[in-house]
């Protein structure tokens, strides 16, 4: 993994460990599906289908992949296990939009607004993200715009203390847009490099709360016209096909520009992100692999797929 030298060795191990379940599952099952067979028969295709679907890759995406596999088998009449692995790997890679962009230089602070449904790990992700930016020598300001959930502000304050960054907050129940306004003004005045805004978890089918995000955006633009530069959607890896609907609705409301996939250290496979990335062309930027401050990793498409199939 020489190309990814910002990836320390133990970080890589943690990713591998987190994804191990996925690896065992998809790869194990698929190997069994084709082991000792010279061609892919109906039964083997069924097993591949099962392997993909139980990883939350979803019916549509699974059928897409299997369709291509069938085409290939029909054309070449023969495919062995190794070829099958390469094939699946290549196909999944094609669907994923990954890659990490360094934060571009902007005039004033670079503003990241973090959104998502309840309980996906927005605040925890922000804590880890703030730590990463701070490690890179950047001046970070957090905005506690989740003024709704009980003790959400306290939670972010603890993270700010732990990581050693500034935080702008108001009382619980105050207007989140006003918190954002204050945060951006303060960040601008103090010459901060990065602003990360925490928003309240909201279900994507709640029209009013989704509208509120639009309002928050507009208010931010009053301080910094281009803000937010990045709208980061946080998805829980254990979420099933509903994540697609989440991506759709949040994108419609706030033009989501990146995804962070959390809780990949569990048994959840996070396969749904493949379909999402494909359908909405949104890059996956980070993955969460634990509750510690270091447990946020830059997502890399090739590594993700390699970890699935190597």
């Amino acid at each position: 993994m020489g190309i990814f030298n910002f990836f320390s060795k133990d970080k890589k191990e943690k990713l591998d460990k987190g994804l191990e379940k996925t690896k065992e599952n998809v790869f194990g099952k698929i190997s069994r599906a084709v082991a000792g067979k010279s061609t892919i028969d109906e039964l083997a295709l069924d097993d591949i289908e099962e392997a993909l679907i139980t990883s939350d890759i979803g019916v549509e995406t699974t059928l897409k992949i299997i369709g291509k596999l069938e085409e290939r088998v029909a054309k070449e009449k023969y495919i062995n296990t190794a070829e099958l692995n390469d094939f699946l790997k290549a196909e999944i890679s094609l669907l994923l939009n990954g890659g990490y962009d360094e934060i571009p230089k902007v005039d004033g602070p670079y503003v990241i607004m973090v959104v998502g449904v309840n309980g996906v790990g927005k605040t925890t992700t922000i804590g880890k993200l703030a730590h990463q930016f701070k490690q890179q020598g950047k001046k970070v300001v957090l905005g506690a715009a989740d003024t709704f959930r009980a003790a959400a502000v306290d939670q972010l304050v603890i993270w700010a203390d732990r990581v050693g960054v500034e935080i702008v907050k108001q009382d619980m129940g105050s207007d989140p847009a006003s918190v954002c306004f204050d945060t951006l003004q303060s960040a601008k005045a103090s010459g901060a490099d990065v602003v990360i805004i925490d928003t309240a978890g909201r279900l994507h089918n709640n029209v009013n709360l989704m509208r509120e995000l639009g309002k928050i955006r507009n208010v931010m633009a009053k301080v910094i016209p281009e803000a937010p530069h990045d709208v980061m959607l946080v998805l829980d890896a254990s979420t099933g096909q509903n994540a697609i609907e989440q991506a759709k609705q949040f994108t419609a409301a706030t033009e989501v520009s990146s995804i962070t996939l959390t809780k990949l250290d569990g048994t959840a496979k996070g396969g749904v992100v493949i379909g999402i990335s494909d359908q909405f062309q949104i890059p996956v930027r980070y993955i969460g692999v634990g509750e510690g401050v270091e447990d946020l990793q830059v997502f890399n498409k090739n590594e993700f797929v390699d970890s699935l199939f190597n």
């Binding site: 829980d236 099933g240 496979k269």
Partner: peptide, 12 residues
């Protein structure tokens, strides 16, 4: 358990 849980619901 979150109603949005995917295939992992079974394992968990």
């Amino acid at each position: 358990v979150d109603a949005m849980t995917g295939q992992d619901a079974v394992n968990t």
